[in-house]
Design a protein around this nucleic acid. Structure first.
Lengths: 349, 349
DNA sequence: TATGTAATTGAAATCGGTTTCAGACAGTCC
DNA sequence: GGACTGTCTGAAACCGATTTCAATTACATA
């Protein structure tokens, strides 16, 4: 008992196991990893001692002597956004299957944090870094940031979900163009011609790409682009609310609204309701991300889904492959899917 | 150049710095940590070389020789639930201020995962483990699980957000009783007597405690407890929806519904709307957690808030203090607050 | 029984830091 | 000048694993 107290905090090591088994640490290590053959009788004895103490080798020591830590660091913009939490959990599950564990840091969109977190992950000797959202999504890459990432890439593979060029990263990105095409085809197929776009910043690449396809699709259908129908903002409910308020004041009201994400869509819904209009009878609403929010709203939102499980799997596969020195495509695409729910309907106007 | 390529993946060490500065590694270490005095001129020279290479010491090696890793492991039930993501980010920010970094693992409510994650964190030599949600919330502690936690506690402090007894953990929990008191006072103050409770499992301690106070408050106001008004379930929208459907079919309909969390409340709102009733004119709705969902709904939800920033801060403060060997209260409480929005109103029936 | 080969095993080096310990050196005081 | 003090500094041990290398043992074959 008193001995227990004295030992508090001191955990058991491979040498303790070796001593109790009357063998060397090398042999215990071999049993632990199955890295070389050990005489059956001896192996069983050692294994039973390992089990008895539920001994788990110190990951720090292991990481120090091995070349790999079997750890992947993930920097997300903000897990409080369900888009990132869904993607993170998908990565975690995929990583686990591959025998890796993941760490999570939130950059909260602050450049200094992103850089500091890169440094921490580097110090922790993760085998790869996945950065989702934040600076890597900028349409125009910040030079200082690119320089930093380039330095990181020299020792650790970096996989990003955004457009970041100017650094030797691997990219696994959503095919935004395809997503917007799906949305536009859906709306135009329902007879909508007066389509608005709310929320999002043009400095964010994914938003900009969406906007491009929005224009392209309208033009392709001979529909004139109405500048008043595009009201940017951010990615939160307030932004969607404000933008929609502005749009609903227009003389020539649109019959459909595309929100940059589900948050913005929730604000749009509120604004529409407050204007005494119905969804989808008077106005259709579509959004991007298909987070659980889409399912919480009334009416439930038609939204573009990114198949988070597959997306996470692809990110981890890439991280694992690159860190193992395998050749992997620099750029991989993830196909979005349109999930049709109750917020879109035929245009009667 | 070719040299660069050869060195790819090999990062710079304290010995490289020492060699370039013409001193020993010990001296560089002293400059790095300010752990002992080094002659000014020499110190500056070493520092400039450190800066030049942006050298950051290998955290694995450091953790191996130090007693602490300045790392805190967090096991959450599921960060996709905004309750946990809010709390996690609060912890991350608080940890950062204290010079710690945090890791995140999701147990997803699976016992085997919780145990495996405890083992991984132990191997990674985190200075403390914070477990939020999952098994630690059980009203009746699982013996095998308690045994596991007890073993973990022998080497690493564990802080939990739930009721887990039977293991020498530290607990920082929400004062559920106070929360439910606030809710009941609010509703009864608005004239409600027929109050229903939807969602949640009684095997979860926090839910059970809420139920107890629900009963207590009714009795204290001389209101008879109606068993039909309590419909348990889980913590998702569907559960709230199903439970509310059941309740709205009753002859003697309640005038207020308390949902176990914002998710369940969103389902309740949907059911109420589908029954052609209005919130709060016909029925008031209150919920717990005050996640951003409460703000997304129409009407916006009146909900119990846990002050996540302070809660996270308290968790980290406790983790840091305990791992430093300081004496800390075994049980600390966090006070909830009622945030009144648009889903509750005076009872006219 | 002698010999060759394959299977086992442990000593020692290594990973990249920190820290103790003792020696070198400089400055102060009689 | 000698003794004493205090400041700097590096060598070496240590943290807990893995792995190389060489030695030992076991076993099959001639």
């Amino acid at each position: 008992m008193e001995n227990d107290r004295l030992n508090a905090g001191k955990s058991i090591t491979i040498y303790d196991i070796a001593a109790e088994a009357g063998v060397s640490a090398s042999t215990v290590s071999r049993v632990l990893n199955g890295s070389a053959s050990v005489r059956k009788e001896k192996k069983d004895r050692i294994q039973s001692i390992i089990d008895k103490y539920n001994f788990k080798p110190n990951a720090l020591a292991k990481g120090l002597s091995d070349t790999a830590t079997k750890t992947i660091g993930i920097i997300a913009a903000d897990v409080r956004n369900p888009y990132y939490s869904a993607l993170f959990v998908a990565c975690e599950i995929a990583a686990e299957k591959a025998g890796y564990s993941v760490g999570l840091a939130n950059s909260l969109g602050v450049k200094e944090r992103e850089q500091a977190q890169l440094d921490i992950l580097l110090q922790q000797k993760v085998d790869a870094i996945i950065q989702m959202g934040g600076r890597v999504d900028d349409l125009i890459t910040d030079d200082a940031y690119a320089e930093k990432v380039r330095a990181v890439c020299a020792s650790t593979p970096v996989i990003v979900t955004g457009k970041l060029d100017k650094a030797p990263v691997h990219r696994v990105v959503i095919d935004e163009a395809k997503g917007m095409n799906l949305v536009m085809e859906h709306l135009i197929g329902l007879g909508h011609h007066k389509i608005a776009l709310v929320g999002g910043e043009m400095r964010v690449a994914s938003t900009f790409y969406k906007y491009q396809r929005y224009e392209d699709n309208l033009k392709a259908h001979g529909i004139k682009v109405n500048g008043e129908y595009v009201v940017n903002g951010y990615y939160d409910p307030e932004s969607g609310y404000d933008a929609t308020n502005k749009i609903l004041k227009l003389e020539d009201r649109p019959t459909a609204i595309i929100a940059i994400n589900d948050f913005a869509a929730s604000g749009a819904l509120r604004s529409i309701r407050e204007h005494g209009l119905r969804v989808p009878e008077d106005i259709s609403v579509v959004s991007f991300d298909n987070t659980y929010i889409a399912d919480l709203m009334s009416p439930k939102l038609t939204s573009i889904d990114y198949n988070y499980d597959k997306y996470g799997q692809k990110l981890i596969d890439t991280a694992v492959a690159v860190s193992a020195g395998k050749e992997v495509e620099d750029l991989q695409m993830v196909d979005p899917v349109l999930v049709i729910r109750d917020s879109t309907g035929i245009c009667y106007n």
